[in-house]
Amino acid sequence: MRSAVIVFPGSNCDRDMAVALETVTGQKPHMVWHGDSELPSGLDVIAIPGGFSYGDYLRSGAMASRSNIIKPVMDAAQRGVRILGVCNGFQILTEMGLLPGALMRNSNIHFVCKDAELDVVNTDTIFTSGYLENTPILTPVAHHDGNFFADTYTLDRLENEDRVVFRYRSEINGSSRNIAGIINEAGNVLGMMPHPERAIDKKHGGTDGLPLFESLLG
């Protein structure tokens, strides 16, 4: 299982993500700089980590989604490589157009930093097959722009196609229909605001993020 973590100026969860991937695969992921114009060959998984790429200038994820490495990431997505975007990574995936909607400023304007209870709405994805149905999980959230917005047509479509993967159990940031994570149509690109990579070790206070990496890396 070959994995890579894309690193942007301002990424700050890249090392956490690398530790999570290495813990599960036993192999160190490639750390790929945003300015590179190609990815290592034979990747199975690409992770786009959390942080504040480019200081969130213009819009969260906007600058990162136009950097050199994005073209090869898009190509990899088309080929079916598994792509996980967490927090800023989710924002980048929507700005790239790989996932629909947009992540806007939290409706109460506050930065939210706490553990959030999530429903795993769809356990039948390559990212969530390790979770049990009807069993909420606890994962950290830490974001200012996590308010998921999409028009009603898109929201209905996401729900009808079982592409809402995670939902907050209570309202925390104003997200439409409490959406915390969604998947693309082909099922190989997941974006989520909560941080599974910060819940993989008992010392983190919980290990509810671990099944995601185990599912993903199989």
Binding site: L58, R59, E95, A102, F149, A150
Partner: peptide, 9 residues
């Protein structure tokens, strides 16, 4: 269209 505005929102 490409950068300055996100026409989703």
């Amino acid at each position: 269209d490409k950068l300055l505005a996100n026409t989703v929102i």
